[in-house]
Design a protein around this nucleic acid. Sequence first.
DNA 1: GAAACCATGTAAGTTGTTACATGATTGG
DNA 2: CCAATCATGTAACAACTTACATGGTTTC
Lengths: 187, 187
Amino acid sequence: MFWRGAGPVNIRTLCLGLLSRGEATGYEIRKQFEGPLGYIHEPSFGSIYPALTRLTREGLVSFTVQAQEKRPDKKIYRITPKGRAHLREQLQESVPGPDRLHSDFLLTMLFRDLLSEEFARMAVDERIRIYREIAESIERGHEEAPHDAGLEFVQGCGLAMCRAAIDFLEDYKAGLEAGRQQVAAGE
Amino acid sequence: MFWRGAGPVNIRTLCLGLLSRGEATGYEIRKQFEGPLGYIHEPSFGSIYPALTRLTREGLVSFTVQAQEKRPDKKIYRITPKGRAHLREQLQESVPGPDRLHSDFLLTMLFRDLLSEEFARMAVDERIRIYREIAESIERGHEEAPHDAGLEFVQGCGLAMCRAAIDFLEDYKAGLEAGRQQVAAGE
DNA sequence: GAAACCATGTAAGTTGTTACATGATTGG
DNA sequence: CCAATCATGTAACAACTTACATGGTTTC
């Protein structure tokens, strides 16, 4: 049976993978996605906590409770040997297929003819801003953190695509400007 | 209330948008995503038919039944004036935010250290193949179909990102090769 | 004094996927 | 003769998001 959702991309595998790099709480796992990893996924607490509960039930991770004064107790999770084996197996189960892109921007621009000039310009400008932000975040992350081959690859790939997108969008904007000036000049 | 799912990316808006270009059946809507638009979304029939039913209930589209011999009747959908107004409004409700990327490939490569050399190489090769396929599909679509500004933009953007990804992946492969040769030469 | 951070968790709801149901026709 | 194409639709299920519940601490 071919089951699309059974591919490695799900929050459980993501959590398991991060825990293979070192122990962490649910809160800390979440935080790791706010940095340069954010362009891959930004899972919510509502999905991380249940994922960790299930991983524990399956024996793939374990946790110790660290009591804290005036705060809820911390649960520090770590991967078990079984979890590590499972992760390795899961990741290499099949060669990853195409990505799924969920882009409000592209969908909106697909119907560009229905948008006002102003809105389209705003959307493109905002998109350039977003990509710049992501690119900077990756560059920053690249400088500070000690990184392994995986992180290096993912960050490099993200950076390459961000830059390509920025270039494309700026060319597009330049093209629009040129077109407008021709119109203004009465061509 | 800020509701992420209320953004324009959902199958209903997508169907409505395509119907704004001309009438179509559910089956034909699906087909449009098999071409160069496929990199944005590949919705299943199980989501398209209910979407059309709901759009009809909301008065945003209407349909006429075309009887066919020895086949189920066709339902030919078209957008209503109300639907067109709704689409315009929906698309321009807010400037689109960041994309959500769902990538088995990046997630797998993020844990590259856990993968065998061979698997990693296969994954990268397969990815190059996939991007080439998408790029070709876009180039083909660009030649044959008459296109509006929206399609042109989306295809151009997709092509730029595909090419960037291919370049990155091939550089990466070349880097690996060079590294292996150094090792083989006893450096 | 408001906002952001720390810290975990549950319940309700949306969205979309896969699998099933049905079945003739055409092309290799 | 097997696969793909045409054609629509439902039911079961998975996955994730948002909102709610709780509440002290730190920073601007």
